[in-house]
Amino acid sequence: MEPVQTGNYEEAITHFRQALESDPDNPLLYTNMGSLLAQTGEYEQALACYRRAIHLDDKQAGAYYGAGNISYNVENYQEALQFYKQAEAVGMNDQSLHMMIGMCEYQLGNLPFALARLQRAVELDPNDEDARFYFGLTLAKSELITEAIEAFQAVIGKNEGHADAHYNLGIAYFSKEEKEKALDYFNKTLALQPDHYLAAHGKKQVEKAMEK
């Protein structure tokens, strides 16, 4: 639809409303309408559209996934996880779904499940910077530091300007007591983002440790 392609979401929403008046029991129209409303920040209405789509067709994977995104955005991670798993149950099996299930598991503290999903997301799309970064964070939280370092270095290999990947490399190397490497990565973080207060704090901690 041309209004969507040109970013005119309000016009596109008007078109979908008109279409729904003519075809009120079309679950795909409700799913698409929900996606548009979500993009304009109208989450409550978007969720209502997704729920209507699911009511009309409980195999609407896109509606479950869209509803999951809304729940995730408002930090209702348990509900988001349920929606995402329903999307998977009706046949959705792409990289973004594994990524979001992994993110929910990470936020809920279920690290082994998060690791499995995020690893699968990375396998499906090695260029997904966010998937690889959160895979690294989950490895680090799981105390798999060497593997976490590899993941963060891979992020930097794709995006040298990723300040948080540099910062987390600093943390990882500090935990291994490789102080010079830790200091180097904290300095790199601050060069990229001077107001990164966690990196500034990490740098002070390393410098104190090196004085002893």
Rank of each mutant, 00 (worst) to 15 (best):
D164K: 08
L198C: 08
K179H: 08
N187F: 07
Y65C: 04
G157Y: 11
L139C: 12
Y84M: 08
Y72L: 14
A67G: 12
G157A: 09
Y197A: 14
K179T: 04
K181H: 07
G41I: 02
H162F: 11
A140I: 00
L192S: 07
A163L: 13
E129W: 10
G41T: 05
A61F: 10
P112T: 00
G102H: 04
D57P: 00
A116H: 04
Q205A: 13
D58V: 05
G136R: 00
P126T: 02
Y84R: 08
Y197P: 02
A46N: 07
E10S: 05
R51M: 06
L111T: 04
E207S: 05
D25H: 12
N127A: 13
C49D: 08
Y134P: 00
K204N: 09
H162R: 12
E88Q: 11
I171P: 01
A165L: 10
T146A: 11
P112W: 01
F135H: 03
L108K: 08
N73H: 07
M210L: 13
G34S: 06
K158C: 07
E2V: 03
G102N: 03
K85R: 12
N69V: 02
H166G: 01
D164F: 07
P24G: 07
E129T: 04
A172G: 06
Q60H: 06
I101G: 01
K181P: 01
N32P: 01
R52T: 05
M99P: 01
Q193P: 03
N110Q: 13
A38S: 10
A151E: 00
